[in-house]
Design a protein around this nucleic acid. Structure first.
Length: 796
DNA sequence: TTAGATCGGGG
DNA sequence: GTGTACGATCTAA
């Protein structure tokens, strides 16, 4: 019988000395199933050796089953190799050591069995797959089908059934301790499903609240509800690091089996440095990990709390409640309903965030071909590596990971970076910005940059001098890196074309995923633990990048443009007496000479911009500038206006000054504005809440060698009996008085309007934020702060 | 400047 | 689990 299904998760067991793959998934009809398949572990040996010597190898229960002679490429050159099949996966590392002792090289001995299976069978998780086989009895929560044949069927993708989970714990002190403190409530949220399970009864009309009689029952009920809901994805926010480790520990203490695995296995916490919670058959997704890593790049927030992330991505926040007082509410059985609401809302946010970023996750799964559980936790370098491995494996023997020594040596390799043309600090008008579209990826593709095509003997490609030597890449044979990156670029190009007529968020996510992957290639080539490490490739990439940006700069100068600024892939020119059309013509001219997929884009026109020096006396102004476009949108780079430990008034003044200068081109107005704020601060006319400084404590107050103002404020909090620790946001105000700043600190709610030290704010908050901006306009600090009336009076 | 330590997220 | 490899930021040297 044929069954079409979407695989979600994969695992294997050894039965009667044979490994059996368990491929979990959901059928087209929505039924959860497990496909059982046989598959043989193997690795490759390359070198002069008698096949019989390998066939004879065995140790304990591990043995060689058979050896096949195969033709495969090794580093993009054809080689004959031996494919060594062994009895079980665990035999691979043991037998490969024995083969190594025969004096031959070994390869692909550390590719996880389940991943090897997916690659060899061409199966892509979440993508429609067809299995031919009959149902067999098995110890499983879902029907098991023994596969006679299995193969990918179509591009169709699963809409996974998602269940979000979040727990609240008893927490009287600033310490997370599952050994001491119980779980008070467990929240679950899915499609048409809301539930908070808790074990202290209180009157409520909320239907989602469910009472049980003990923590043990709470855990037991959690197991039942997960089973009933039968999710493909069980999702949490930081659930690898908190919720599941806590649940597992409490389950152990309460002697409850957390056996939600589809084979009746319990949740398992694995991993050395980074904890992971693994559930057989259910993809546990820690959405925090994915968002921080993949989505975070394009987000404004600098903290990845559930509240901040939900605020930005969903426009929705956490339910407001004094979380640190939950233990008290529990003890007194007072106001617990609010905490249940809070618990559920966290689940809702986690669920919605997952829905929101799911297209990105799914697309990465489809490109890389590993299960969502893995993709959720992988880093960019591993994305690239597994993508390369899957692409290469049918023709290439995959290179080994470097040994410790090799990796250490690679660590000291340095690559000469990008070229920066430093702008002169100043105010400028009519700026046109160009940038190379996906500069590094397009160079890798267009110059056929790849490990196996480096310095070929067969042709005379353009050569590039670098500090490491002269490098060129074959013009006849297409390289692995360049081939796969070209595919990514072209595939993205197609999607972007479709995006012009459709606003489908799925397409946008696909485009984003492809971009993320393509942009990771350059970093990967110079990443010490990489299998396909190629420092010459990385060096060549930046060298060509410098070459092309210089070319653009030279062309601009030749056409009579003044070049203002250039960094890596961008070029800022001044129009002066030229028109936008002249700028476009320049771009066309540059583009005519570019090879392959390379292209210079017109990024935009800006009527005004200001470039500011980084430090006092620093002539260059790289990476610190503000531009304004024709629609009055400001583009601010490198200014500290977002720094958290600045008072609101400091951020506000910096922002306004940039706005007045860029929009109205009126330095005197900006100056007058600052002078007014200075005067208002000195007269304590600026509202108190605008001078409050927010700083997060990085450790306990005892841990600081020198007591800064925020630490002094934290100590005041402690003196008042408030709980303070790492991560607490300290809100303080500097008040008038003598002595050190730390002795003039008051908590935000202690201070009054007329006691804050206006002069402190002028000197330490306002001036540092605008000093360099005014320096550009020839206005000194004195012009901003000196009170003319006072000084003239002083003259008498 | 560079190497080593810490922290993030969660309660 | 046929294993592994975070990375940004701060601090001390």
């Amino acid at each position: 019988m044929k069954t079409s299904f979407y695989p979600t998760d994969i695992n294997y067991v050894v039965k009667e000395g044979k490994p059996i793959i368990q491929l979990y998934g959901r059928t087209k009809e929505g039924r959860q199933i497990c496909v059982l398949d046989s598959f043989e572990p193997y690795f490759y040996a390359v070198g002069k050796v008698d096949v019989k010597d390998i066939e004879a190898l065995r140790q304990d229960d591990f043995k060689v089953v058979r050896v096949e002679k195969v033709k495969k490429n090794l580093n993009e050159r054809e080689t004959s190799a031996l494919k060594v099949f062994v009895n079980i996966p665990k035999a691979v590392p043991v037998i490969k050591d024995l083969v190594l002792q025969l004096g031959v090289d070994v390869y692909e001995y550390d590719i996880l069995f389940t991943r090897r299976y997916l690659i060899d069978k061409g199966i892509i998780p979440l993508t429609l797959t067809e299995v031919d086989g009959e149902e067999v009895p098995a110890q499983s929560r879902v029907p098991c089908i023994k596969a006679k044949k299995i193969a990918p069927k179509s591009d169709e993708t699963l809409q996974p059934k998602i269940l979000a989970v979040d727990i609240e714990t008893y927490n009287p002190v600033r310490e997370v301790n599952p050994k001491k403190h119980p779980i008070l409530m467990i929240g679950l949220y899915g499609k048409d499903f809301s539930r908070v399970i808790t074990w202290k009864k209180f009157p409520t009309k909320e239907k989602y609240v469910e009472f049980v009689s003990s923590e043990a029952d709470c855990l037991q009920r959690f197991v039942e509800l997960v089973n009933q809901y039968a999710p493909d994805f069980l999702v949490g926010y930081y659930s690898d690091g908190f919720d599941f480790p806590f649940l597992v520990e409490r389950a152990m203490i309460n002697k409850v089996k957390l056996d939600i695995g589809l084979d009746f296995s319990c949740v398992e916490i694995v991993g050395r440095t980074q904890k992971e919670a693994k559930i057989i058959g259910i993809s546990h997704i820690d959405i925090f990990k994915f968002i921080r890593k993949v989505i975070g790049r394009s987000m404004k927030t600098d903290v990845y709390t559930l509240d901040a992330v939900s605020g930005e991505l969903l426009g929705e926040k956490k339910h407001v409640v004094a979380k640190e007082l939950l233990f008290k509410a529990w003890d007194d059985n007072k106001g617990l309903e609010e905490y249940c609401k809070y618990n559920l809302q966290d689940c809702v946010l986690t669920y919605k965030l997952t829905e929101k970023v799911l297209p990105n996750l799914v697309e990465l799964v489809r490109i890389i071909g590993l299960p969502p559980y893995d993709v959720d936790r992988m880093t960019f370098s591993t994305f690239v590596e597994w993508y390369l491995m899957r692409k290469a494996s049918s023709v290439e023997i995959i290179p080994n990971r470097p040994g410790r020594m090799v990796e250490m040596n690679r660590m000291s390799d340095r690559i000469k970076g990008a070229f920066v043309f430093e702008p002169k600090p100043g105010f400028y008008e009519n700026i046109v910005v160009f940038d190379y579209r996906s500069l590094y990826p397009s160079i890798i593709a267009s110059h056929n940059i790849s490990k196996g095509t480096l310095n070929c003997k067969c042709c005379d490609s353009p050569k590039m001098e670098t500090e490491r030597g002269t490098f060129w890449f074959c013009g006849k044979q297409k390289g692995l890196f360049s081939t796969v990156i070209s595919e990514l670029i072209l595939r993205r190009g197609e999607i972007k074309k479709q995006l012009k007529t459709s606003k489908d968020p799925l397409l946008a996510a696909r485009s984003e995923a492809l971009k993320v992957l393509a942009n990771s290639f350059y970093g990967y080539m110079g990443f010490a633990p990489a299998r396909y490490y190629c420092i010459e490739c990385a060096e060549s990439t930046t060298a060509w990048a410098r070459h092309y940006i210089h070319k653009a700069i030279d062309a601009a100068k030749q056409s009579g443009f003044t070049v203002l600024y250039s960094d890596t892939d961008s070029l800022f020119v001044l129009l002066e007496k030229k028109s936008k059309n002249d700028a476009l013509a320049l771009m066309e001219k540059i583009n005519k000479d570019l090879p392959g997929l390379m292209e210079l884009d017109y990024e935009g026109f800006y009527p005004a911009g200001i470039f500011v020096s980084l430090r006092a006396g620093d002539s260059g102004a790289k990476k610190k500038y503000a531009l304004i476009d024709e629609k009055s949108n400001m583009k601010i780079k490198g200014f500290e206006s977002v720094r958290r430990n600045w008072s609101f008034i400091a951020k506000d003044v910096q922002q306004k000054v940039l706005e007045i200068i860029l929009k109205e081109h009126d330095a005197n107005k900006a100056k007058a504005f600052v002078r007014q704020v200075v005067e208002d601060l000195r007269k304590n006319k600026i509202p108190l809440d605008k001078v409050v400084i927010h700083t997060a404590l990085s450790k306990g107050t005892a841990g600081y060698a020198n007591v800064g103002p925020h630490v002094a404020a934290a100590q005041r909090m402690e003196a008042k009996g408030l709980e303070v620790g790492a991560g607490t946001i300290i809100k303080y105000v500097v008040i008038r008085g003598k002595g050190l700043i730390r002795d003039k600190v008051k908590l935000a709610d202690e201070a009054t309007q007329d006691e804050y030290d206006g002069e402190y704010y002028v000197q330490n908050q306002i001036i540092p934020g605008v000093e360099r901006i005014f320096a550009v306009l020839g206005i000194g600090v004195d012009d901003l702060t000196k009170n003319t009336r006072q000084s003239s009076l002083a003259g008498f």
